[in-house]
Design a binder for these strands. Structure first.
Lengths: 213, 213
DNA sequence: TTTGGATTATTAACGTTGTTAAGTAAATTT
DNA sequence: AAATTTACTTAACAACGTTAATAATCCAAA
C-alpha cells in the first residue's frame, strides 16, 4: 500500500500548509484576522478546501494551541541545568513571562482564549495534555523545593497552581492591556513584572522573614 | 427649556432599555450572543435604532464594563468595617474571587476581554478610571499594612499589582477553564482558590516565617 | 395653523464571517 | 474501458456589524 502512504503524506503536507498560513496570519495580524477565507487565499485554494483538512476553525486554533506549547517547551529547554530548585523555579517564572511577552498571540491561545478549551470539552476530553505536562514540571520543582527546605511543606498542587496563577495574572493583565494603565512606559512592563516575580519568590521562600525589626 | 429636558430623559430611557436588554443577553447567554440584532429584537426596535443611542457595539460593551465595576463596588460595600488592614486585604481578595465566580461574564469584560480597552485607546484615553479606583483602594490597604508592620516595606504599587495579579490569575484561569482540568469537581473550585489565597496571604505576611526548623 | 427643519425610526443594502450542499474534474480501482 | 472514490470548486445560506437612503414624527417659528 505504498500509494496510500504517499497520499497520507500529501494530506499531512496540505495540513501543514494550512497551519503555516494560519500561523503567519495569527502572528502577523492577530487572532481576529485568521479567517478561513484568508487562509485559503494564502495557500491558493478555495475556502471550502480547508474543511477537507480541518473539521472547523476551532480545530485549527486547537492545533495552533498545541504548537504554542511546543514553542514554550523549547523556551525552557536548558532549564534542567539549574540545580538549585528555587533558582530553577524563579527562572521558570522569568521564562514564562518572557515567552508571553514575545508571543502574546500564542499565549492568549494557550491560556486565555476559550476556543481551544471548548474544543476539548466537545470532544468529551477531560484532559488538557499540554497544560498538564507543564504543571507537572512545575510541581516537580515545587516538591524538590519543599524537600530541600526552600519552600515550606504544603500541598504541592495548590502551591504550584498558586505560583502559576501569579505569573499568569501578571501576563494576562499585561496582554489584555490592564497593566499599561499603571505602567505607562511599555519598555518597563517586563522589568516591572520581573520585579513582581522577585518580590513573590522572596516572600514564599521559607524562613526568609525580612520582617521589620 | 423644559421640553428639551424631557427629551433627554427619554433618550436616556431608551439607552437604559438597550443596556438592560444587553445585560440580559450577556448574563443569560454570554458574550457571543450579545448581537445588535438580538438586542433590537428584545427591545422591539429595528437594529439600526440601536445606533442612534450607541456609536457601535463596543460602546455598549464599554457601558457594561462600567456597570460591572459598580456591581463589584457594591460587593465591597462593607469592607471598611474591617479594621485590621491585613484581614481587610484578605477579605478583599475573597470578595474578588467571589464576585468573579458569581459574575463570570462581567469579570471577563472588566479584566479579560480586549474590547473595552480598545475603546479607551481609540478615544485617546490614557486612563482606565474604574480600574484605577479599584487599584487605589487596594494600594491604600497595602500601605496601611506596611505602616502597621503586617507587610514588609516595599513599593506599594508593585505589591498591589502583585496581589491583584495573584487573584486575577486564579480567577481568569478558572473562568477560562484552565483550572478545572486540575480541580475536577466544580464545587471545589472556589474553595481551592480561597485556599490558594490563604497560602498567599500567609506567605506575604511579614515575620510569619513558618520555616521548617 | 401651516410650513419647515430637526429628531426618530425604518427598510434595504453592503461587505464580512463560518459553514454546507451540490457539482465537477481527476485519479484510482475494478 | 467503466465504475468509483478522491480532491477540489462554485454557489449559496444564515448571521453578523454597520451605513445610506427614506419615511414618519415632533417642535418651533411664520
Amino acid at each position: 500500500m505504498g500509494i496510500q502512504e504517499r497520499k497520507e503524506k500529501q494530506k499531512l503536507e496540505i495540513r501543514k500548509l494550512i497551519l503555516d498560513a494560519s500561523m503567519k496570519l495569527f502572528v502577523e495580524e492577530g487572532f481576529e484576522n485568521v479567517t478561513i477565507r484568508r487562509i485559503a487565499e494564502l495557500i491558493e485554494y478555495s475556502p471550502t478546501t480547508v474543511y477537507l483538512y480541518f473539521k472547523d476553525k476551532d480545530e485549527i486554533f486547537a492545533a495552533l494551541h498545541d504548537i504554542g506549547f511546543q514553542k514554550m517547551a523549547e523556551f525552557n529547554k536548558d532549564l534542567d541545568t539549574i540545580r538549585n530548585p528555587l533558582l530553577r523555579l524563579h527562572k521558570m517564572g522569568e521564562n514564562y513571562l518572557q515567552f508571553g511577552m514575545e508571543n502574546p498571540e500564542y499565549y492568549s491561545l494557550m491560556f486565555i482564549d476559550t476556543e481551544p478549551m471548548d474544543k476539548l470539552a466537545e470532544e468529551g476530553c477531560e484532559e488538557w495534555r499540554p497544560g498538564d505536562a507543564a504543571i507537572n514540571r512545575l510541581k516537580a520543582t515545587v516538591i524538590e523545593c519543599m524537600e530541600k527546605g526552600y519552600l515550606q511543606q504544603d500541598d504541592p498542587l495548590v502551591v504550584s497552581l498558586s505560583i502559576w496563577s501569579f505569573v499568569h495574572g501578571l501576563m494576562s493583565l499585561s496582554i489584555r492591556c490592564r497593566l499599561e494603565k499603571f505602567i505607562p512606559h511599555k519598555e518597563m512592563l517586563l522589568p516591572t513584572m520581573k520585579a513582581s516575580l522577585n518580590w513573590f519568590v522572596n516572600n514564599i521562600e521559607a524562613g526568609n522573614t525580612s520582617a521589620k525589626e
